[in-house]
Design a protein around this nucleic acid. Structure first.
Lengths: 212, 212
DNA sequence: CAAAACAGACCGACTAGTCCGTCCGAAGGG
DNA sequence: CCCTTCGGACGGACTAGTCGGTCTGTTTTG
C-alpha cells in the first residue's frame, strides 16, 4: 500500500482546481493549501507553475499517444484500427477527465518551449488518424469523396468535445458513448464494399430500437 | 463612411489579443495601448474586464442562436433544417473566428451572473439541435439506434472543434468544409428511407473523386 | 551527519480598477 | 452669432491588493 507522494498530491489537487476554475483562476497558494503542502514543497517538486501545467499536459498526451499506437499495432484493418483508436481515446475520459479539460482549455498558457513539445505529440496523434483514414480509402473500405484531413479533424472534434459535456454520473457509460461514436463514424465513412465486411458488424449498433 | 467608435475598437483589439494570448495573458493596459485608448476610455465603456469578456460572448452566441432559429423556420424538413443550421453555424467562422475562440476557450472565467446568462443561450442552442434530430427520428428520416442527445453533442463537437484548426488562408473555404460536415453527418444519420428523398442529394458530395 | 525534502515568512513585480482632470460638442441665453 | 454653461467621453497618474517565486531555516531519511 504505497502512500501518495507529495508530487502526486499536488498534481491531483491542481487538476481538480484547474478543471473547476481554470489555470489562472487558481493560485499556487491555493494548491499548496488544499494539498496540505507548502510553497517550499511545491517549488521543490516543480520549477514553476508553468512546469506543473506542462507536466499535466505531458502525462495525458503521452498516455493517449501510446494507447493509439498500441491500438494501431494490435489491429490489422483500417476499420478495426480506427475503431480501436477511438475506443481507446474515449475510454480515457474515465481516467483522465480533468487532465483532458486542462489540456484543451489551458494549452494557450503553455510557454514557448513547453508548448512546442506538446504540439509535437499532438501532431503525431493527428497524423496517425489521418493515416488510418487514408489507408482505408486506399483499400476501398472508406469513401474517397471526403478529404482524409478534414474527416480526421471532424472525428477528433466529435471525440474531444466529449470533455465539455461528459459526466461520470450520467446515464450512459463511457463505453456506450464510444460505441455510438464508432457507429456514427463508420456509417459516415464506409463504402458499400466496406460495409459488407464481417468485422464491421461488431462495431455497429443493432437496428432494433430500445437497446441500452 | 462611419468611423469606428472607441468601444468597437476596444472590442476588436481585445478579440485579436485574447485569441492569441488568452484572456489572462492580456492586460487591460495592453488593450488600451493597442487600441489607442486609455484606462478612462476603457472603464467608461465597460464596467470591468469581465464585462468585456461577457460582451464578446454575448455578441457571438446571440448571433448564432438567431441564425439557427432562422434556419429552422425557413426550412420544412428535419434534413434541410439540420443541414441549414450546420451550414449557418460553420459559416460564422469566417466572420467571428476570434469571438468563437474566446467563447470556447475563456468561458471558464465568466463570473457568476454573466456565466449564467451565456449558459442559457448555449442551452437553447443545444436543445434546438436535439429537437431537430428527434423530429427526424420521429418521421423516419434519421436512424433511431443512436440517442438524439449524444448524436447532437457529436455533431456540435465536430463543428465547434473547427475553431482549433481552421485557417482562413487554408486550402478549403469554410463553405466547402460545411458541405463536408453535412455529407458526413447525413451519411451517419439517414435511414434508407431518408436517403431516398430527392432533397437529400443537394447536401451530399458526389461519388466521383476529384471534385473540388 | 550529509543531503534531500519540506515549511512558511517574505519580497518584488504586476495589474485591475480608481480618481481627478481635460477636452469637446450641444444647449441656451443675450 | 457669440459667449457661457454643462455633461458626457476620454486621458493618464496612482493605488491597493494579489500572486508567483525566493530564501532561510527545520525536519526527515538513508
Amino acid at each position: 500500500m504505497k502512500k501518495y507522494s507529495l508530487k502526486e498530491r499536488i498534481v491531483e489537487t491542481a487538476l481538480v482546481l484547474f478543471e473547476k476554475k481554470g489555470y489562472h483562476g487558481v493560485t499556487v497558494d491555493q494548491i499548496v493549501a488544499e494539498s496540505g503542502s507548502s510553497k517550499g514543497g511545491f517549488y521543490h517538486n516543480f520549477k514553476s507553475k508553468d512546469e506543473l501545467l506542462y507536466h499535466i499536459h505531458d502525462v495525458f498526451i503521452s498516455y493517449v499517444l501510446d494507447k493509439a499506437r498500441e491500438a494501431y499495432d494490435n489491429c490489422e484493418t483500417p476499420v478495426s484500427r480506427l475503431c480501436a483508436i477511438i475506443q481507446s481515446f474515449t475510454k480515457v475520459f474515465d481516467l483522465y477527465k480533468p487532465h483532458i479539460t486542462v489540456f484543451y482549455q489551458e494549452s494557450t498558457y503553455l510557454t514557448g518551449d513547453f508548448n512546442q513539445q506538446i504540439n509535437e505529440k499532438r501532431d503525431k496523434y493527428r497524423r496517425l488518424i489521418i493515416q488510418v483514414i487514408q489507408e482505408g480509402q486506399a483499400n476501398g473500405d472508406f469513401r474517397t469523396e471526403v478529404p482524409a484531413e478534414i474527416t480526421a479533424m471532424a472525428i477528433i472534434g466529435m471525440v474531444n468535445w466529449t470533455y465539455k459535456w461528459f459526466k461520470k454520473e450520467g446515464p450512459l457509460s463511457i463505453e456506450a458513448i464510444a460505441t455510438i461514436f464508432n457507429d456514427l463514424l463508420l456509417h459516415s465513412l464506409l463504402t458499400e464494399k466496406g460495409m459488407k465486411q464481417e468485422e464491421v458488424y461488431s462495431f455497429l449498433l443493432q437496428s432494433q430500437p430500445g437497446i441500452k
